[in-house]
């Protein structure tokens, strides 16, 4: 299935390899996605597909629309006044913006991690079990298992196993961010969206999150927005470059950073603008 696009950038939609993806090889797909904040158009004709069990990085200068695009994937833009969306965002083939789409279920399946760690002001244990409890899981044994499993997946278990009842606010910034990842994993999502997850962390905490992301992709699909191009190059399999609301180039990370096809991409990643 090939994607037809009105995008004027030849490489702004899909690499040749991606354009022939089978339906079960990708989880999220944007079709002619346009978004306006009042009169301002923040996204223009976005057409792209995100591969399953891969890390896709979205890069671009401030204000290019990358966070806006990420927020479209779990309908977080809905809460913004005067935000209008056209086009489709398909999750496993079903449009997230259909009138009968179950937003709560979709947000369970598509978790989100933000720039600043945002643990709930409660214990570590309660942070992890908060989501499962909402989804009607109440048995202690099951909740204990979920807590241990998710903290282990987020590589935090060894650091907090003896103090699960302590407040999450007492953890360091890096630990808080990993707790937020563990919390997102607790409701068994398929996709993890990350909006500059290491922007407020020191280099060691950043390293741990990056290592974690590489682990996570074995089971989950990760879409990450980052300002740090070296980070995108280190952890992602695919990279998309956005500029002024348009997808300029999308392809394998090594190709984008070593030999980009669009001059705009080259100028941005070599620091000639932005």
């Amino acid at each position: 299935m090939l994607i037809k696009s009105k995008n004027k950038y030849k490489h702004g939609t899909e690499s040749d390899e991606n354009s022939t993806l089978k339906d079960n090889e990708f989880v999220i797909e944007c079709r002619d996605l346009n978004l306006w904040y009042d009169e301002f158009q923040a996204l223009k004709d976005i057409n792209m597909r995100y591969r399953k069990n891969k890390v896709t990085a979205i890069i671009g200068p401030s204000g290019c629309g990358k966070s806006t695009l990420l927020r479209c994937f779990n309908r977080m833009n809905d809460v913004i006044d005067d935000c209008r969306i056209e086009g489709q965002v398909l999750f496993n083939g079903r449009d997230l913006y259909d009138s009968d789409a179950d937003i709560r279920l979709n947000r369970k399946k598509i978790g989100m991690i933000f720039q600043k760690p945002n643990p709930f002001p409660m214990s570590i244990y309660d942070n992890i079990t908060y989501g499962p409890k909402i989804h009607k899981i109440i048995e202690d044994d099951i909740l204990n298992n979920i807590t241990e499993r998710c903290l282990k997946r987020a590589v935090l278990w060894d650091e907090v196993m003896d103090r699960l009842e302590d407040s999450a606010m007492e953890l360091s910034g890096g630990q808080q961010q990993r707790l937020c990842i563990a919390r997102a994993l607790a409701v068994e999502p398929e996709v993890l969206l990350m909006d500059e997850p290491t922007a407020s962390l020191d280099p060691i905490a950043t390293q741990k999150i990056e290592d974690l992301i590489l682990q996570l992709k074995k089971e989950w699909t990760v879409i990450i927005v980052t300002h740090n191009m070296q980070q995108a190059a280190r952890i992602s399999d695919y990279t998309a470059f956005m500029y002024l609301g348009e997808m300029i180039e999308y392809g394998e990370t090594t190709q984008i950073f070593e030999n980009p096809k669009e001059k705009l991409t080259e100028n941005y990643i070599t620091g000639r603008f932005g």
Partner: peptide, 10 residues
Amino acid sequence: LYQPMAIDLR
């Protein structure tokens, strides 16, 4: 110092 990319890296 600069971790260059693309044409600069090449």
